[in-house]
Amino acid sequence: MHIVVCAKQIPDPETPPSAFRIDAASNKVVPAQGIAPVLSQFDGIAAEAALRIKEANAGSKVTVISLGADSAASAIKQVLAMGADEGVLLNDPAFEDGDSYTTAKTLAAAIKKLGDVDAVFCGRQAADWDMGQVGLLIAEEMGWPVSIIAKGVTTGGAGLQIQRVVEDGYETVETPLPAVVTVSNEFGEPRYPKLPQIMAAAKKTVTQWKTADLGLDAGEVGAAGARLKLEKLSTPPRGGAVELMPGDSPEEQAAALVAKLRADKII
């Protein structure tokens, strides 16, 4: 079984709102001082899901692909340290400022170039833009079935057995291979690589592919090929000042609160 994990490097989503800045002129997020970019959380979980399948099925292989700038190599290295076998970085100025569609098209071109892929695992959404599209769009580009928001994935049945999270619980679904799966946090925590694995991963070479390597044209990738146009990125308005309940004891504060809520006729 050859599984591709799509992994994106993003600004740390736990960046406190006070450190979050937007450059209005370029409609871009200004990297927060001293807060390093991270592997998008759900992608680490997708990698964990792929590695468990690799371990359960002898002869399996995991390849991690990222579309991003030079720094995204560290996201790839992180997944290599977890136990992935190979890494590919899709790095070309022409890829910049694309939308979900161009990202998926470029990733799918790389998956086609690898050729022998049985499954693609993505995160449920990249925790920067929170779109949750790229896995589905890769499936459509490849013509493969797709199951989203998985809390469990194993080989079996028609190919893969997936537990998907739905509004009122979970469903078990079965899909033939090749297929795309997007993985959610309900799956559990990803493994934490140990120092020797981190050092071994650091020595591995990451393959780099550009537009031409993928048989694509500069006009169909990045900003040039995008269908969704970002008009504006702004900071949402915040609420007004909080009214803190007076009192020296919890009882006094609780009494003040309940009195307020009753006066406002909310309770």
């Binding site: 997020v29 920067d128 929170d130 504006k232 702004s234 900071t235």
Partner: peptide, 9 residues
């Protein structure tokens, strides 16, 4: 977007 830290149009 950005977990609610931004609004994208």
């Amino acid at each position: 977007a950005y977990g609610g830290n931004a609004v994208a149009t």
